[in-house]
Amino acid sequence: MLTEREYTAAAEQFLDMVYRIALNWFKVPADAEDAAQNVMLRLWRTDTAFQGEEHLRRWLARVTVNECKRISCHPWRSRTVSLECCGEPVFDGQEQRELYQAVMDLPGKYRVPLYLYYYEGYAVDEVGEIMGLNPSTVQTRLARGRAKLKTMLTEE
């Protein structure tokens, strides 16, 4: 069980990661925030003894993916209440806005692997472990996601 100080440090360090994974899953900021809330509540309540920062980070990534699946699979069982004031991200330039839109327009099965691989820096087998996919599936989704993104950005 984390101490209060450990929990606060973990929340400050990893909340954005948890939120971004959920946002890539749901696309809707409100749903992503609901999932992120649930994940952080689990972190607060977990008995897991973390073997260092990387262990905690991967635990959070895996629990976030599992929480997104749980909410998605049976949405009528969603138990969260949306927070107010969570709009779309705001970007500095038109190019970034277009890139964000292109990323969010990708099929859902590509968005989270792309985020875990390119932003969080996980290896293919690590992405597979987090998402419950075998590495070849992850490789395929990364390749197809990259190709689709390139096509969408070229066509604009």
Partner: peptide, 18 residues
């Protein structure tokens, strides 16, 4: 891609809640 998601953050409301 990295620069894009560098700008994506949880809202202040979520941060406070957590």
């Amino acid at each position: 891609y990295k620069e894009l998601f560098d700008q994506v953050h949880a809202s202040p409301a979520l941060r406070t809640e957590v």
